[in-house]
């Protein structure tokens, strides 16, 4: 999908004072070289991001099966979206997924980061254990989780069932399928965000904590008044990518539930896949993509606005 975190081009640099004529030549050469260096990225981004984006917007106004001519249908795709119960359900579930998974993942990441930032026996082991899911293939791991949750032959129900913990009907349970998909989503990303926060924690000067201790601050007060505010930059970044990742949940849905039972764990990205590549309704799928894109855009802009007002430095 789309990552909205485009990198800013490197600073254009200030040239030393040189005679004007030479400076023009130098600038031209520098500019040419700069364009040369960014050309590969521009070509690749253009071909694989900008062009598909524009072409999907165009497609969303057409009835297209990628076979034969496309027919222009105006806003019909968007109109039928509104009347599509499955789409409305998927939209609700995608937002619910994001609203639950984003804060829980980030919260756990902060918790683990703060815990594992202390001197602790086996610290490296725990850090690695929590980070490992981030480097594993989500598709493969989803297969493993599906086995773990399986109500009949799964290990979790087998071990925890006798303790009275119910796993319902596993990934086929209409009330729990989305929960399991969420658990796997959280598990997958929490380690990566934890590492971000560990990096953020390393930038907080120790003196602040020493000063706070002299003033008699308790651990919670230190976290609230020093750690959390000074992690605002990290949080802004982590929240944005966590929200985008949540809105794009697909892999574990595809592997574990296929969106079922009866669409109860289907997300918008899965709907896009299903409509596009199974039903060949590319126009409709493109319309869903654009609805999702707009949602991602709104969420990202809102988050940016929110966090940019809360940046703190001491």
């Amino acid at each position: 999908m789309t990552s909205l975190l485009g990198e800013r081009p490197a600073g254009t640099g200030t040239a030393a004072p040189v005679p004007v004529r030479r400076r023009n030549g130098l600038r031209r050469r520098q500019a040419l070289r700069a364009y040369g260096f960014i050309a590969p990225s521009v070509v690749i981004l253009g071909a694989f991001m900008a062009w598909p984006l524009v072409s999907s917007l165009r497609l969303s106004f057409f009835d297209s099966s990628q076979f034969g001519a496309d027919t222009f249908v105006g806003l019909d795709n968007y109109r039928s979206l509104l009347g599509d119960q499955v789409f409305r359900g998927d939209l609700f579930r995608t937002l619910l997924y994001a609203v639950v998974v984003t804060p829980v993942t980030v919260g756990l990441a902060v918790l683990f980061a703060v815990m594992l930032n202390r001197r602790l026996a086996g610290r490296s082991f725990f850090r690695a254990a929590i980070f490992v899911p981030a480097v594993l293939s989500l598709g493969v791991m989803s297969i493993a989780w599906d086995f773990l949750f399986d109500p009949n032959i799964g290990l979790l129900p087998h071990w925890l069932g006798p303790l009275g913990i119910s796993f319902g009907n596993g990934a086929a349970d209409p009330h729990l399928a989305l929960v399991y998909v969420m658990v796997v989503g959280i598990w997958k990303n929490v380690g990566f965000y934890m590492v971000m926060y560990l990096a953020g924690l390393a930038t907080i000067p120790k003196e602040l904590y020493e000063a706070a201790e002299v003033d008699g601050a308790r651990p919670w007060q230190k976290f609230r008044s020093i750690t959390w505010p000074l992690l605002a930059n990290t949080s802004a970044f982590v929240f944005v990518i966590a929200a985008i990742a949540s809105l794009q949940a697909f892999d574990q849905v595809y592997v574990m539930t296929r969106g079922g039972p009866f669409f109860q764990s289907e997300t918008l990205v899965y709907l896009i896949y299903r409509k596009g590549f199974q039903d060949f309704q590319f126009g409709y799928a493109s319309a869903v993509s654009w609805v999702l894109l707009v949602i991602v855009l709104i969420v990202s802009v809102a988050q940016n606005a929110f966090f940019s007002r809360r940046q703190v430095t001491y």
């Binding site: 040419l32 070289r33 364009y35 040369g36 260096f37 050309a39 590969p40 070509v43």
Partner: peptide, 9 residues
């Protein structure tokens, strides 16, 4: 420089 740019493109 030109060669570098051409090569990259």
């Amino acid at each position: 420089h030109k060669a570098v740019a051409t090569m990259l493109v």
